[in-house]
């Protein structure tokens, strides 16, 4: 599976996300900021668990990167770091949404529960792992390019100060490296588990058949068929 093909798919997703009416509203000062903050937290509160799952499936060539990601999610990569879920909790509290934390936690847990209990679409863990890795890397790719814009929108229009936005600023700095590593890891994963190019690309395309960012961050969007 060629990296440039996957990169092009990611770029189209990011373009559609930032071109969506919901994203435009966020930057223009007329977004539903509380819903957006809750959705971002819900989407990423359980990231350490998902990265741990991917680490368990990682081929040798990608294991070190995924372990690094996992330690970072847990705030264990450097002494000064905090676990990423804690940064999201800070964001909720700073936005005056601390009272929603239990509900958001419950919804994030329910999302994991749903993934685990839903019948598997694929026949083996290798396909499940490729689909999950695709989505994680897609988010890293998007965050490395867009999280700065999201942070600015929240600072400008929701009045959040820099410490509250650390989850976003951290990702804009770190995910440039992660995204590039991630693209290489996707290729390593597909090669190690002996996917043909067609098989791997079909699973990547299926994972990205909808805009994964819009789906997670703007859950109540009413427009369907956002062009990709």
């Amino acid at each position: 599976m060629e990296t440039k093909t996957v990169r092009a798919l990611f770029e189209r997703q990011v373009e559609a996300f930032t071109g969506s009416p919901e994203f435009a509203a966020l930057e223009a000062g007329c977004g539903d900021y509380d819903a957006f903050i809750e959705n971002v937290a819900r989407a990423h509160l359980k990231s350490p668990q998902l990265v741990a799952f991917l680490y368990a499936l990682a081929p040798p060539a990608a294991a070190r990167d995924l372990l690094g990601n996992l330690l970072e999610e847990l705030g264990l990569e450097a002494e000064s770091e905090r676990p990423h879920p804690a940064l999201l909790e800070d964001l909720l509290r700073a936005a005056g949404l601390g009272h929603r934390l239990v509900e958001v936690e419950a919804r994030a847990a329910d999302d994991v529960r749903r993934i685990v209990t839903e019948p598997l679409l694929y026949s083996a863990l290798r396909e499940v792992g490729l689909a999950a890795l695709t989505e994680i890397v897609a988010f890293e790719f998007m965050l490395s390019r867009v999280s700065g814009r999201m942070a600015r929108a929240l600072a400008t229009h929701r009045g959040l100060a820099a410490p509250a936005l650390e989850w976003f600023t951290h990702h804009s700095e770190v995910d440039v490296r992660h995204a590039e590593q991630g693209l290489a890891d996707l290729g390593a994963y597909a090669a190690y588990y002996e996917f043909t190019d067609d098989e791997a690309l079909t699973i990547v395309e299926m994972t990205l058949r909808e805009n994964v960012f819009t789906r997670r961050y703007f859950r109540d969007a009413t427009a369907a068929g956002t062009p990709r």
């Binding site: 839903e118 019948p119 598997l120």
Partner: peptide, 15 residues
């Protein structure tokens, strides 16, 4: 569907 209406997933699985 972007979202279904039940707690349980009714989606079919592999095959």
């Amino acid at each position: 569907l972007a979202e279904d209406v039940s707690v349980e997933s009714v989606r079919f699985g592999h095959r």
